[in-house]
């Protein structure tokens, strides 16, 4: 097998994906501080917005074959409360903290980026791909020109790492190229797929599909994008085993994020990291 470990974007090459571990409150119920460091190279927070967001009405989440569909609606305490109550605890993990940012306008993202200057946060992940909000989110992902402008404007105020989290639908390649040309350090491929379930024959839940069901789709995207853009790609979609991680590396990813698998069993990531290290020396 090829040696992928020489050019990981971060190490260990696993990150916890946004929205799948809350704001860290219960992480230490399953991980000792040492285990967090041995397992994750980056922790990406839940999507944070300027103002608190209460999120969507129930039902918010349901199971699909080998997957989940969710419409949380970016429930979060808002940037001020997040900084005051949660950030200090997260920084104590000594793992690189990336804040997932959600805004409706370019100015919102810029204002959010400024909030994190000098806080100890290592990077920002711009969420232009949430399928569960009326404004912003995935709407950006259909407009490569707007994404270019967005990244440029945030880059002006943010010197740390800057990632853009792509939607797997829309003009993905053009958006990826827009990120590359406007100063993004990496792209995260990808967020959830817009989907729908009918619950108990009556309630309609529109949301984003995640989990093992989407892995072949996102893997294909990572493969295609890695041949077209030169900035690193963080693979994210359906990872639930060490083999899944290796598949992403084979397809060109320089690191990966784990989401839904953490919901199934928080300790799975620990086992994956261990297997990568012991079997593959990663």
């Amino acid at each position: 097998m090829k040696d992928y470990s020489r050019n990981f974007l971060f190490y260990p090459p696993l990150a916890l994906a946004s929205g799948t571990w809350g704001l860290g409150e219960n992480l230490f119920k399953y991980y000792s501080p040492a285990e967090v460091k041995e397992t994750f190279g980056v922790l990406v927070t839940k999507g944070i917005s300027l103002k608190p967001r209460i999120g969507n009405l129930p039902p918010r989440i349901w199971e699909t074959p080998c997957g989940l569909i969710n419409s949380i609606g970016l429930a979060n305490p808002g940037v001020k409360e997040f900084k005051k109550i949660f950030l200090t605890g997260l920084l104590k993990t000594e793992v690189k903290i990336f804040v997932n940012l959600y805004g409706e306008e370019i100015e919102d993202f810029v204002a959010l980026a400024e909030e994190f200057k000098g806080t100890g946060v290592s990077g920002l992940e711009l969420n232009i791909s949430c399928p569960n909000v009326k404004k912003g989110g995935i709407a950006f992902a259909s407009q490569p020109e707007v994404v270019k402008e967005l990244v440029k404007e945030v880059r002006k105020v943010w010197e740390g790492s800057l990632w853009v989290k792509l939607s797997p639908v829309g003009p993905v390649l053009d958006v990826a190229k827009a990120c590359e040309s406007s100063g993004a350090d990496a792209i995260v491929c990808a967020n959830t797929y817009p989907g729908l379930v009918v619950i108990e024959g009556e309630k309609v839940l529109k949301g984003g599909v995640s989990g093992p069901a989407i892995k072949p789709l996102t893997l294909r995207l990572v493969y295609e994008l890695s041949r077209e853009v030169s900035i690193p790609i963080v693979g994210c979609g359906g990872i639930a085993s060490a083999k899944d991680v290796l598949d992403y590396f084979v397809c060109g990813a320089k690191a990966v994020e784990i989401g839904t698998a953490f919901l199934i069993d928080p300790e799975l990531a620990k086992k994956i990291a261990k297997e990568l290290k012991e079997k593959w020396d990663m």
């Binding site: 929205g19 799948t20 571990w21 809350g22 409150e25 219960n26 119920k29 839940k46 209460i54 999120g55 009405l57 129930p58 039902p59 918010r60 989440i61 349901w62 199971e63 989940l68 969710n70 949380i72 429930a75 953490f262 919901l263 928080p266």
Partner: peptide
């Protein structure tokens, strides 16, 4: 429906009369 049971996913909302969840 509980996806995580641990406060990670924010999916298990119960609407309250005070407008909060």
């Amino acid at each position: 429906f509980l996806a995580c049971g641990e406060g990670f996913c924010m999916g298990c909302v119960i609407p309250l009369k005070n407008g909060k969840y």
